[in-house]
Design a protein around this nucleic acid. Sequence first.
DNA 1: GTCTATAAGCGGATAGAC
DNA 2: GTCTATCCGCTTATAGAC
Lengths: 219, 219
Amino acid sequence: MLAGTDSPQSATAPRTTATGEANRERILDAALARFARTGLSGTRIDEIAADAGLSKTNLLYYFRTKNALYLAVLRRTLEMWLEPLRQIDAGRDPQAALAHYVTRKLEAARDCPEASRLFALEVMRGAPMLSGMIAGDLKDLVDAKVALLRHWQAEGRIGVHEPHHLLFHIWAMTQHYADFAVQVEGLTGRTLDDPAFFEQALQAILAAVSGMAFGPPKD
Amino acid sequence: MLAGTDSPQSATAPRTTATGEANRERILDAALARFARTGLSGTRIDEIAADAGLSKTNLLYYFRTKNALYLAVLRRTLEMWLEPLRQIDAGRDPQAALAHYVTRKLEAARDCPEASRLFALEVMRGAPMLSGMIAGDLKDLVDAKVALLRHWQAEGRIGVHEPHHLLFHIWAMTQHYADFAVQVEGLTGRTLDDPAFFEQALQAILAAVSGMAFGPPKD
DNA sequence: GTCTATAAGCGGATAGAC
DNA sequence: GTCTATCCGCTTATAGAC
Protein backbone atom coordinates (compact mmCIF):
# COMPACT_ATOMS: atom_id res chain seq x y z
CA MET A 1 0.00 0.00 0.00
CA LEU A 2 2.43 2.63 1.15
CA ALA A 3 5.96 2.45 -0.12
CA GLY A 4 8.72 2.19 2.43
CA THR A 5 6.67 0.80 5.30
CA ASP A 6 7.50 -2.54 6.79
CA SER A 7 4.80 -3.15 9.35
CA PRO A 8 2.12 -0.73 10.51
CA GLN A 9 3.76 0.22 13.78
CA SER A 10 7.37 -0.71 13.10
CA ALA A 11 8.68 2.82 13.15
CA THR A 12 6.70 3.98 16.15
CA ALA A 13 6.85 3.47 19.89
CA PRO A 14 5.40 0.24 21.26
CA ARG A 15 2.80 0.67 23.97
CA THR A 16 -0.62 2.25 24.16
CA THR A 17 -0.91 4.18 27.39
CA ALA A 18 -3.32 6.95 28.27
CA THR A 19 -1.03 9.95 27.86
CA GLY A 20 0.91 8.13 25.18
CA GLU A 21 -2.04 7.87 22.86
CA ALA A 22 -3.07 11.46 23.55
CA ASN A 23 0.43 12.68 22.75
CA ARG A 24 0.55 10.67 19.55
CA GLU A 25 -2.70 12.25 18.44
CA ARG A 26 -1.52 15.74 19.22
CA ILE A 27 1.71 15.12 17.34
CA LEU A 28 -0.15 13.79 14.32
CA ASP A 29 -2.51 16.77 14.31
CA ALA A 30 0.34 19.24 14.56
CA ALA A 31 2.34 17.36 11.94
CA LEU A 32 -0.53 17.39 9.46
CA ALA A 33 -0.91 21.14 9.81
CA ARG A 34 2.81 21.71 9.26
CA PHE A 35 3.43 19.16 6.52
CA ALA A 36 0.36 20.34 4.61
CA ARG A 37 1.75 23.85 4.54
CA THR A 38 5.51 23.51 4.18
CA GLY A 39 5.96 19.96 2.97
CA LEU A 40 8.22 17.25 4.28
CA SER A 41 11.54 18.96 3.79
CA GLY A 42 10.28 22.42 4.69
CA THR A 43 9.01 21.36 8.08
CA ARG A 44 11.22 21.03 11.16
CA ILE A 45 10.28 18.48 13.74
CA ASP A 46 10.94 20.90 16.58
CA GLU A 47 8.19 23.12 15.15
CA ILE A 48 5.79 20.19 15.21
CA ALA A 49 6.91 19.33 18.72
CA ALA A 50 6.36 22.89 19.89
CA ASP A 51 2.87 22.96 18.34
CA ALA A 52 2.07 19.72 20.13
CA GLY A 53 3.47 21.02 23.40
CA LEU A 54 6.36 18.57 23.55
CA SER A 55 10.10 18.65 23.22
CA LYS A 56 11.76 17.53 20.03
CA THR A 57 13.36 14.58 21.82
CA ASN A 58 10.03 13.56 23.20
CA LEU A 59 8.46 13.66 19.77
CA LEU A 60 11.25 11.39 18.56
CA TYR A 61 10.33 8.99 21.32
CA TYR A 62 6.93 8.50 19.70
CA PHE A 63 8.09 8.63 16.10
CA ARG A 64 11.65 7.44 15.58
CA THR A 65 12.25 9.52 12.46
CA LYS A 66 10.73 12.47 10.67
CA ASN A 67 9.97 10.25 7.73
CA ALA A 68 8.10 7.74 9.90
CA LEU A 69 6.00 10.59 11.27
CA TYR A 70 5.27 11.84 7.77
CA LEU A 71 4.18 8.38 6.69
CA ALA A 72 1.96 8.03 9.75
CA VAL A 73 0.27 11.33 8.91
CA LEU A 74 -0.17 10.33 5.30
CA ARG A 75 -1.66 6.99 6.28
CA ARG A 76 -4.06 8.48 8.79
CA THR A 77 -5.26 11.02 6.22
CA LEU A 78 -5.76 8.62 3.34
CA GLU A 79 -9.19 7.32 4.27
CA MET A 80 -10.58 10.78 4.87
CA TRP A 81 -9.55 11.71 1.37
CA LEU A 82 -10.87 8.59 -0.37
CA GLU A 83 -14.06 7.99 1.52
CA PRO A 84 -16.40 10.37 -0.35
CA LEU A 85 -15.60 8.63 -3.63
CA ARG A 86 -16.74 5.28 -2.25
CA GLN A 87 -20.19 6.72 -1.72
CA ILE A 88 -20.90 7.02 -5.44
CA ASP A 89 -22.81 3.81 -5.94
CA ALA A 90 -24.93 2.26 -8.62
CA GLY A 91 -28.06 2.35 -6.49
CA ARG A 92 -28.44 6.08 -6.74
CA ASP A 93 -29.71 8.39 -9.38
CA PRO A 94 -26.66 9.65 -11.32
CA GLN A 95 -27.45 13.31 -10.84
CA ALA A 96 -28.09 12.87 -7.11
CA ALA A 97 -24.99 10.73 -6.69
CA LEU A 98 -22.75 13.28 -8.39
CA ALA A 99 -24.29 16.18 -6.50
CA HIS A 100 -23.78 14.32 -3.25
CA TYR A 101 -20.18 13.60 -4.13
CA VAL A 102 -19.44 17.20 -5.06
CA THR A 103 -21.01 18.41 -1.83
CA ARG A 104 -19.02 15.97 0.28
CA LYS A 105 -15.80 16.94 -1.44
CA LEU A 106 -16.42 20.66 -1.01
CA GLU A 107 -17.26 20.11 2.66
CA ALA A 108 -14.00 18.22 3.01
CA ALA A 109 -12.15 21.12 1.38
CA ARG A 110 -13.74 23.44 3.92
CA ASP A 111 -13.42 21.26 7.01
CA CYS A 112 -10.02 19.71 6.44
CA PRO A 113 -8.07 21.62 3.79
CA GLU A 114 -4.88 20.22 5.25
CA ALA A 115 -5.70 16.74 3.99
CA SER A 116 -6.12 18.06 0.48
CA ARG A 117 -2.91 20.06 0.60
CA LEU A 118 -0.92 17.19 2.04
CA PHE A 119 -1.83 14.96 -0.89
CA ALA A 120 -1.38 17.74 -3.37
CA LEU A 121 2.15 18.33 -2.16
CA GLU A 122 2.89 14.63 -2.19
CA VAL A 123 1.57 14.17 -5.73
CA MET A 124 3.46 17.21 -6.99
CA ARG A 125 6.70 15.74 -5.68
CA GLY A 126 6.01 12.72 -7.85
CA ALA A 127 4.21 10.87 -5.04
CA PRO A 128 7.24 8.86 -3.87
CA MET A 129 5.33 7.71 -0.81
CA LEU A 130 2.01 7.25 -2.59
CA SER A 131 2.99 5.80 -5.95
CA GLY A 132 2.07 2.32 -4.86
CA MET A 133 -1.26 3.56 -3.70
CA ILE A 134 -2.04 5.54 -6.84
CA ALA A 135 -1.28 2.43 -8.86
CA GLY A 136 -3.17 0.27 -6.36
CA ASP A 137 -6.07 1.10 -4.10
CA LEU A 138 -6.87 4.47 -5.64
CA LYS A 139 -6.70 3.13 -9.18
CA ASP A 140 -8.95 0.20 -8.29
CA LEU A 141 -11.48 2.53 -6.74
CA VAL A 142 -11.33 4.99 -9.62
CA ASP A 143 -11.58 2.20 -12.17
CA ALA A 144 -14.70 0.91 -10.46
CA LYS A 145 -16.32 4.33 -10.43
CA VAL A 146 -15.32 4.97 -14.04
CA ALA A 147 -16.96 1.67 -14.94
CA LEU A 148 -20.12 2.78 -13.18
CA LEU A 149 -20.09 6.10 -15.03
CA ARG A 150 -19.64 4.26 -18.33
CA HIS A 151 -22.58 2.08 -17.42
CA TRP A 152 -24.69 5.16 -16.84
CA GLN A 153 -23.47 6.50 -20.15
CA ALA A 154 -24.51 3.33 -21.93
CA GLU A 155 -27.95 3.73 -20.44
CA GLY A 156 -28.06 7.30 -21.67
CA ARG A 157 -28.38 8.66 -18.15
CA ILE A 158 -25.28 10.86 -18.31
CA GLY A 159 -23.39 12.61 -21.10
CA VAL A 160 -20.63 11.48 -23.34
CA HIS A 161 -17.41 12.87 -21.92
CA GLU A 162 -14.70 10.48 -20.81
CA PRO A 163 -15.53 9.67 -17.14
CA HIS A 164 -11.94 10.09 -15.95
CA HIS A 165 -12.07 13.76 -16.84
CA LEU A 166 -15.34 14.22 -15.01
CA LEU A 167 -13.74 12.85 -11.85
CA PHE A 168 -10.56 14.89 -12.33
CA HIS A 169 -12.52 18.08 -12.75
CA ILE A 170 -14.62 17.46 -9.68
CA TRP A 171 -11.44 16.89 -7.70
CA ALA A 172 -9.82 19.94 -9.25
CA MET A 173 -12.66 22.36 -8.56
CA THR A 174 -13.40 21.22 -5.02
CA GLN A 175 -9.80 20.85 -3.92
CA HIS A 176 -8.90 24.19 -5.42
CA TYR A 177 -10.64 25.88 -2.49
CA ALA A 178 -8.41 23.98 -0.09
CA ASP A 179 -5.12 23.97 -1.98
CA PHE A 180 -5.32 27.60 -3.13
CA ALA A 181 -7.22 28.94 -0.13
CA VAL A 182 -4.72 31.75 0.30
CA GLN A 183 -5.24 32.90 -3.27
CA VAL A 184 -9.01 32.53 -3.12
CA GLU A 185 -9.15 34.60 0.03
CA GLY A 186 -6.67 37.12 -1.35
CA LEU A 187 -8.78 37.68 -4.45
CA THR A 188 -12.27 37.58 -2.97
CA GLY A 189 -11.76 38.32 0.71
CA ARG A 190 -13.88 35.30 1.54
CA THR A 191 -13.49 31.63 2.47
CA LEU A 192 -15.62 28.49 2.41
CA ASP A 193 -16.37 29.13 6.07
CA ASP A 194 -18.66 31.87 4.82
CA PRO A 195 -21.88 29.90 4.13
CA ALA A 196 -22.95 32.17 1.29
CA PHE A 197 -19.57 31.81 -0.38
CA PHE A 198 -19.69 28.04 0.09
CA GLU A 199 -23.08 27.94 -1.57
CA GLN A 200 -21.90 30.08 -4.50
CA ALA A 201 -18.97 27.77 -5.06
CA LEU A 202 -21.12 24.68 -4.76
CA GLN A 203 -23.71 25.92 -7.23
CA ALA A 204 -21.05 26.86 -9.75
CA ILE A 205 -19.42 23.44 -9.46
CA LEU A 206 -22.76 21.69 -9.80
CA ALA A 207 -23.45 23.74 -12.92
CA ALA A 208 -20.07 22.72 -14.29
CA VAL A 209 -20.75 19.07 -13.54
CA SER A 210 -24.13 19.38 -15.19
CA GLY A 211 -22.44 20.82 -18.24
CA MET A 212 -20.15 17.80 -18.41
CA ALA A 213 -22.55 15.05 -17.45
CA PHE A 214 -25.98 16.34 -18.43
CA GLY A 215 -24.93 18.99 -20.90
CA PRO A 216 -27.20 20.65 -23.41
CA PRO A 217 -28.18 18.45 -26.33
CA LYS A 218 -25.75 19.30 -29.10
CA ASP A 219 -28.25 18.74 -31.91
CA MET B 1 5.45 43.50 -6.48
CA LEU B 2 7.58 40.73 -5.13
CA ALA B 3 8.40 40.76 -1.46
CA GLY B 4 12.02 40.78 -0.42
CA THR B 5 13.50 42.16 -3.58
CA ASP B 6 15.39 45.40 -3.55
CA SER B 7 16.26 46.08 -7.13
CA PRO B 8 15.84 43.79 -10.11
CA GLN B 9 19.44 42.63 -10.32
CA SER B 10 20.66 43.39 -6.84
CA ALA B 11 21.13 39.78 -5.82
CA THR B 12 22.66 38.63 -9.08
CA ALA B 13 25.95 39.04 -10.86
CA PRO B 14 26.55 42.31 -12.68
CA ARG B 15 27.52 41.98 -16.30
CA THR B 16 25.87 40.59 -19.40
CA THR B 17 28.40 38.60 -21.35
CA ALA B 18 27.79 35.95 -23.96
CA THR B 19 28.44 32.86 -21.88
CA GLY B 20 27.19 34.62 -18.79
CA GLU B 21 23.74 35.12 -20.15
CA ALA B 22 23.63 31.58 -21.49
CA ASN B 23 24.65 30.20 -18.12
CA ARG B 24 22.05 32.27 -16.33
CA GLU B 25 19.36 30.92 -18.63
CA ARG B 26 20.46 27.33 -18.13
CA ILE B 27 20.49 27.83 -14.37
CA LEU B 28 17.02 29.34 -14.40
CA ASP B 29 15.67 26.51 -16.54
CA ALA B 30 17.19 23.87 -14.30
CA ALA B 31 16.04 25.68 -11.18
CA LEU B 32 12.45 25.91 -12.42
CA ALA B 33 12.37 22.17 -13.04
CA ARG B 34 13.72 21.38 -9.58
CA PHE B 35 11.81 23.98 -7.57
CA ALA B 36 8.55 23.02 -9.28
CA ARG B 37 9.01 19.43 -8.19
CA THR B 38 10.60 19.57 -4.76
CA GLY B 39 9.96 23.10 -3.65
CA LEU B 40 12.37 25.65 -2.26
CA SER B 41 13.53 23.77 0.80
CA GLY B 42 13.52 20.36 -0.87
CA THR B 43 15.86 21.42 -3.63
CA ARG B 44 19.64 21.54 -3.27
CA ILE B 45 21.52 24.06 -5.33
CA ASP B 46 24.18 21.54 -6.28
CA GLU B 47 21.44 19.52 -8.01
CA ILE B 48 20.44 22.59 -9.98
CA ALA B 49 24.08 23.29 -10.78
CA ALA B 50 24.61 19.74 -11.99
CA ASP B 51 21.51 19.92 -14.20
CA ALA B 52 22.82 23.16 -15.67
CA GLY B 53 26.28 21.69 -16.18
CA LEU B 54 28.01 23.97 -13.70
CA SER B 55 29.60 23.65 -10.32
CA LYS B 56 27.74 24.72 -7.23
CA THR B 57 30.24 27.51 -6.61
CA ASN B 58 29.81 28.71 -10.12
CA LEU B 59 26.05 28.82 -9.74
CA LEU B 60 26.55 30.93 -6.64
CA TYR B 61 28.59 33.30 -8.72
CA TYR B 62 25.51 34.04 -10.84
CA PHE B 63 22.98 33.95 -8.02
CA ARG B 64 24.34 34.91 -4.63
CA THR B 65 21.87 32.90 -2.62
CA LYS B 66 19.41 30.10 -3.14
CA ASN B 67 16.61 32.44 -2.23
CA ALA B 68 17.67 34.99 -4.82
CA LEU B 69 17.66 32.25 -7.44
CA TYR B 70 14.20 31.15 -6.34
CA LEU B 71 12.91 34.70 -6.62
CA ALA B 72 14.45 35.08 -10.05
CA VAL B 73 12.72 31.91 -11.21
CA LEU B 74 9.42 33.04 -9.74
CA ARG B 75 9.69 36.42 -11.39
CA ARG B 76 10.59 35.01 -14.78
CA THR B 77 7.66 32.61 -14.63
CA LEU B 78 5.04 35.13 -13.57
CA GLU B 79 4.27 36.59 -16.95
CA MET B 80 3.91 33.19 -18.56
CA TRP B 81 1.32 32.32 -15.99
CA LEU B 82 -0.67 35.57 -16.19
CA GLU B 83 -0.54 36.26 -19.85
CA PRO B 84 -3.46 34.09 -21.05
CA LEU B 85 -5.81 35.89 -18.67
CA ARG B 86 -4.99 39.24 -20.23
CA GLN B 87 -6.30 37.99 -23.53
CA ILE B 88 -9.90 37.86 -22.32
CA ASP B 89 -11.08 41.17 -23.64
CA ALA B 90 -14.35 42.94 -24.11
CA GLY B 91 -14.03 42.96 -27.87
CA ARG B 92 -14.68 39.26 -28.20
CA ASP B 93 -17.74 37.12 -28.09
CA PRO B 94 -18.01 35.76 -24.52
CA GLN B 95 -18.16 32.12 -25.55
CA ALA B 96 -15.25 32.48 -27.94
CA ALA B 97 -13.22 34.43 -25.38
CA LEU B 98 -13.72 31.83 -22.68
CA ALA B 99 -13.02 28.95 -25.05
CA HIS B 100 -9.84 30.66 -26.16
CA TYR B 101 -8.78 31.22 -22.57
CA VAL B 102 -9.43 27.62 -21.59
CA THR B 103 -7.48 26.39 -24.58
CA ARG B 104 -4.53 28.64 -23.81
CA LYS B 105 -4.49 27.55 -20.20
CA LEU B 106 -4.62 23.86 -21.08
CA GLU B 107 -1.83 24.33 -23.60
CA ALA B 108 0.19 26.02 -20.88
CA ALA B 109 -0.47 23.07 -18.56
CA ARG B 110 0.81 20.77 -21.29
CA ASP B 111 3.77 22.83 -22.46
CA CYS B 112 5.03 24.20 -19.16
CA PRO B 113 3.58 22.27 -16.24
CA GLU B 114 6.50 23.43 -14.13
CA ALA B 115 5.20 26.99 -14.11
CA SER B 116 1.86 25.81 -12.78
CA ARG B 117 3.45 23.62 -10.12
CA LEU B 118 5.85 26.32 -9.01
CA PHE B 119 2.99 28.69 -8.26
CA ALA B 120 0.89 25.96 -6.73
CA LEU B 121 3.68 25.15 -4.29
CA GLU B 122 4.21 28.80 -3.52
CA VAL B 123 0.52 29.45 -2.90
CA MET B 124 0.18 26.36 -0.73
CA ARG B 125 3.01 27.59 1.47
CA GLY B 126 0.96 30.71 2.05
CA ALA B 127 2.61 32.56 -0.84
CA PRO B 128 5.25 34.35 1.27
CA MET B 129 7.01 35.52 -1.88
CA LEU B 130 3.85 36.22 -3.84
CA SER B 131 1.49 37.70 -1.30
CA GLY B 132 2.20 41.20 -2.49
CA MET B 133 1.48 40.14 -6.00
CA ILE B 134 -1.74 38.30 -5.20
CA ALA B 135 -2.94 41.41 -3.44
CA GLY B 136 -1.59 43.60 -6.25
CA ASP B 137 -1.09 42.86 -9.93
CA LEU B 138 -3.02 39.61 -9.94
CA LYS B 139 -5.93 41.06 -8.01
CA ASP B 140 -6.10 44.07 -10.31
CA LEU B 141 -6.13 41.85 -13.36
CA VAL B 142 -8.70 39.49 -11.88
CA ASP B 143 -10.89 42.36 -10.75
CA ALA B 144 -10.84 43.76 -14.26
CA LYS B 145 -11.81 40.45 -15.79
CA VAL B 146 -14.49 39.88 -13.18
CA ALA B 147 -15.90 43.29 -14.04
CA LEU B 148 -15.99 42.31 -17.69
CA LEU B 149 -17.77 39.06 -16.86
CA ARG B 150 -20.31 40.98 -14.79
CA HIS B 151 -20.85 43.29 -17.71
CA TRP B 152 -21.55 40.32 -19.95
CA GLN B 153 -23.91 39.03 -17.29
CA ALA B 154 -25.78 42.31 -17.20
CA GLU B 155 -26.22 42.05 -20.94
CA GLY B 156 -27.54 38.55 -20.55
CA ARG B 157 -24.72 37.07 -22.60
CA ILE B 158 -23.45 34.71 -19.90
CA GLY B 159 -25.05 32.95 -16.93
CA VAL B 160 -25.57 33.96 -13.39
CA HIS B 161 -22.82 32.37 -11.33
CA GLU B 162 -20.39 34.57 -9.45
CA PRO B 163 -17.58 35.31 -11.94
CA HIS B 164 -14.81 34.64 -9.45
CA HIS B 165 -15.85 31.01 -9.24
CA LEU B 166 -15.90 30.68 -12.99
CA LEU B 167 -12.28 31.84 -13.12
CA PHE B 168 -11.24 29.66 -10.19
CA HIS B 169 -12.78 26.60 -11.78
CA ILE B 170 -11.11 27.22 -15.11
CA TRP B 171 -7.78 27.54 -13.31
CA ALA B 172 -8.50 24.46 -11.24
CA MET B 173 -9.42 22.20 -14.12
CA THR B 174 -6.67 23.24 -16.48
CA GLN B 175 -3.91 23.38 -13.89
CA HIS B 176 -4.95 20.03 -12.48
CA TYR B 177 -3.37 18.37 -15.51
CA ALA B 178 -0.07 20.05 -14.69
CA ASP B 179 -0.09 19.92 -10.90
CA PHE B 180 -1.41 16.36 -10.63
CA ALA B 181 0.18 15.03 -13.79
CA VAL B 182 1.65 12.07 -11.93
CA GLN B 183 -1.78 11.08 -10.65
CA VAL B 184 -3.48 11.66 -13.99
CA GLU B 185 -0.94 9.49 -15.74
CA GLY B 186 -1.05 6.86 -13.00
CA LEU B 187 -4.81 6.54 -13.31
CA THR B 188 -5.23 6.80 -17.06
CA GLY B 189 -1.84 5.90 -18.48
CA ARG B 190 -2.00 9.02 -20.62
CA THR B 191 -0.79 12.62 -20.62
CA LEU B 192 -1.71 15.88 -22.33
CA ASP B 193 1.06 15.16 -24.82
CA ASP B 194 -1.31 12.60 -26.28
CA PRO B 195 -3.37 14.78 -28.67
CA ALA B 196 -6.50 12.66 -28.26
CA PHE B 197 -6.27 12.90 -24.48
CA PHE B 198 -5.70 16.64 -24.70
CA GLU B 199 -8.81 16.99 -26.83
CA GLN B 200 -10.90 14.89 -24.41
CA ALA B 201 -9.79 17.04 -21.50
CA LEU B 202 -10.42 20.25 -23.44
CA GLN B 203 -13.93 19.23 -24.50
CA ALA B 204 -14.84 18.23 -20.97
CA ILE B 205 -13.60 21.53 -19.58
CA LEU B 206 -15.45 23.47 -22.26
CA ALA B 207 -18.61 21.57 -21.37
CA ALA B 208 -18.07 22.44 -17.72
CA VAL B 209 -17.56 26.10 -18.57
CA SER B 210 -20.68 26.04 -20.71
CA GLY B 211 -22.57 24.61 -17.77
CA MET B 212 -21.41 27.49 -15.61
CA ALA B 213 -21.60 30.34 -18.08
CA PHE B 214 -24.21 29.27 -20.62
CA GLY B 215 -26.00 26.64 -18.57
CA PRO B 216 -29.39 25.20 -19.38
CA PRO B 217 -32.29 27.55 -18.78
CA LYS B 218 -33.55 26.72 -15.34
CA ASP B 219 -37.20 27.49 -16.11
C1' DG C 1 34.55 33.13 -14.63
C1' DT C 2 35.77 28.89 -12.67
C1' DC C 3 38.05 26.18 -9.48
C1' DT C 4 39.51 23.93 -4.48
C1' DA C 5 39.03 24.21 0.10
C1' DT C 6 36.68 25.38 4.00
C1' DA C 7 33.86 27.91 7.12
C1' DA C 8 29.47 28.11 9.45
C1' DG C 9 24.99 26.72 10.84
C1' DC C 10 21.06 24.10 10.88
C1' DG C 11 18.43 20.20 12.01
C1' DG C 12 17.82 15.23 12.58
C1' DA C 13 19.00 11.73 15.55
C1' DT C 14 21.32 9.33 19.75
C1' DA C 15 23.07 8.55 24.67
C1' DG C 16 22.11 8.31 29.04
C1' DA C 17 20.43 10.45 33.46
C1' DC C 18 16.16 11.00 35.93
C1' DG D 1 8.15 8.99 29.38
C1' DT D 2 10.70 13.07 29.59
C1' DC D 3 14.77 15.60 30.06
C1' DT D 4 19.86 17.62 28.96
C1' DA D 5 23.61 17.29 26.32
C1' DT D 6 25.78 16.17 22.29
C1' DC D 7 26.97 14.21 17.95
C1' DC D 8 27.05 14.19 13.15
C1' DG D 9 25.93 14.85 8.44
C1' DC D 10 24.33 17.73 5.18
C1' DT D 11 23.94 22.11 2.63
C1' DT D 12 24.55 26.89 2.08
C1' DA D 13 27.80 30.25 1.49
C1' DT D 14 32.58 32.39 1.52
C1' DA D 15 37.74 32.89 0.74
C1' DG D 16 41.12 32.98 -2.24
C1' DA D 17 44.06 30.78 -5.99
C1' DC D 18 44.13 30.35 -10.98
